[in-house]
Amino acid sequence: MLQADRSLGLTLVVSEITVLFRRLRTWAMIGALALIPILIAVVVRVSSDGAASGRGPAFLDSITQNGLFVSLTALTVAIPLFLPLTIGVVAGDTIAGEANLGTLRYLLVAPAGRVRLLLVKYAGAALFCFVATLTVVVTGAVIGALLFPVGPVTLLSGDTVGIPGYFGRLLLLALYVTVSLMGLSAIGLFISTLTTIPVGAMAATAALAAVSQILGALPQLEWLHPWLFTHYWLGFGDLLRQPIVWNSFADNVLLQLGYIAVFGALAYGRFSTKDILS
């Protein structure tokens, strides 16, 4: 036992990820996310009469020329609604879900340690953010390649990158979106410590994402915009320039870290002393 004492106890992280991905619900959400690029690609392919109207989501018109743009279009569609919704479900469920099942008391009696459990839960939610984003990107690339011609991609700056370079950018993009969702995950974790009803925490988290985006759309609140966790959500365009402009990435990281610090501290403050009565 002494030798095990020295271990970091990473097995709980492994266990958390296993439990998360053994749930049907998780796969249903990933499936739904994968449907977004598929739906977009199929609709564009079926109705493709060459009439690029200039309306609809960003990059939509480029799809017929280059299937690789499906990923970008799908991300633009998924970021405001579908991604926050699924992250709301996972992050809102973190503590409240265990409390609702009653398993929380057995994890704590094991003892998992309250701080350790919070960290593990957050790590699980973060991993889900990455998997969810990657699902959209990868499915988009695959369905795009199947239905449309694929070739070197013209970036926003007018430069052209080859397919390997483009995939590098896509991976960066997935990272960017994952980082964007870290603040929301921290908010979800905090809300999840407040209740034993997971649906409530999920709905509240998803609703906050919507509220933040609505506030971000009101020009009267411009002073507030840089502080909203959704502010940089669609700001990934800078990663599609040559050379890459890192400013928005860095600002986004800083903002999300701020949210993680504040809501992480709130979650700790709440959970470390909470009576577990469920």
Partner: peptide, 8 residues
């Protein structure tokens, strides 16, 4: 799962 929660 419960066993993994105990780091010992």
């Amino acid at each position: 799962r419960f066993d993994a929660a105990d780091r010992h």
